[in-house]
């Protein structure tokens, strides 16, 4: 018994929720990206004048687009679910007539929308700083969609798992942030010592940034097939894990 209107309504609820606090959810991330452009861009572009013929700012911009998308895709479902837990609204969620797959579609759909919106707005602001070239628009679109899905699944999974805000903060600050910052947002990973370069290959964010950066600049530090394979399989596994958690009512039903 499918309930498309119910699914759309939950998607709408999730979207309205972040649009109602747009200063915090849309404007703030774009402003922080502008600050990154200003601070890192202006200071590091002297130290790193160009990378494979591409200006440092053009090199940096795709990394910042990914950075904004990752954070927002993750935050949308994780904060929504944990707030529901604190407000006692999880029982409401378990009472409405939606299948688990429909819950997944609604939460992830809204998180992907928010991530894409942030990515697009970061791109629009970056246009003022950077002369973009577009090596492959289809790779930009495909990789940003996959990135949004992966972190939306992760955010939903973490929201389901967490009993308190602290757990989400811990994961964001001690797992995600290091992975993102060591993922080559601000520098080419090929500059890393060989051992760290090898370790970096296991960091999915490296592959995400590599794909988006290739889409804009044509620079690829890792094989595109490897990056797509890593990103695709991480997304698939995370999606399945999240669906199974929802299906079992893990940490949602008593």
């Amino acid at each position: 018994m499918a309930n498309p209107l119910g699914t759309y309504t939950l998607f709408k609820r999730e979207t309205k929720r972040f649009m109602k606090v747009y200063m915090q959810t849309i404007i703030a991330p774009v402003v922080s990206n502008l600050l990154y452009f200003a601070v890192f861009g202006l200071s590091l572009r002297k130290a790193i004048p160009s990378i494979e013929g591409v200006s440092y700012l053009a090199f940096l911009a795709p990394g910042l687009i990914v950075l904004g998308m990752v954070n927002n895709a993750f935050q949308n479902p994780s904060s929504s679910i944990i707030i529901m837990k604190f407000q006692g609204l999880i029982d409401d969620l378990m009472t409405i007539p939606l299948k688990r797959i429909e819950l997944l579609i609604a939460f992830v759909g809204s998180a992907v929308l928010r991530a894409m919106l942030i990515g697009f707005m970061t791109y629009l602001t970056a246009i003022y700083f950077v002369d973009f070239s577009y090596a492959s628009i289809s790779i930009i679109i495909l990789s940003t969609i996959l990135i949004s899905f992966f972190f939306s699944f992760l955010g939903l999974f973490v929201g389901i798992w967490a009993n308190e805000f602290e757990r989400i903060d811990f994961l964001q600050n001690f797992v995600m942030l290091p992975l993102i910052f060591l993922g080559g947002v601000f520098y080419p990973i090929s500059d890393l010592p060989p051992l760290f370069l090898k370790i970096s290959m296991f960091n999915p964010v490296v592959h995400m940034i590599n794909l988006v950066r290739y889409g804009f600049t044509g620079i690829s530090e890792v094989s595109l097939i490897t990056s797509f394979a890593v990103l695709g399989s991480f997304t698939l596994v995370m999606g399945l894990a999240t669906y199974i958690a929802l299906r079992k009512g893990w940490k949602l039903q008593t």
Partner: peptide
């Protein structure tokens, strides 16, 4: 339910519109 809890983001009308939507109305 026994416990009073609402979506603090929304007005009375929005809450009821969303609830209608969940039930396909």
């Amino acid at each position: 339910p026994q416990e009073i809890s609402f979506d603090s983001f929304f007005t009375v009308n929005e809450i009821l519109e969303l609830q209608s939507g969940y039930y396909g109305i």
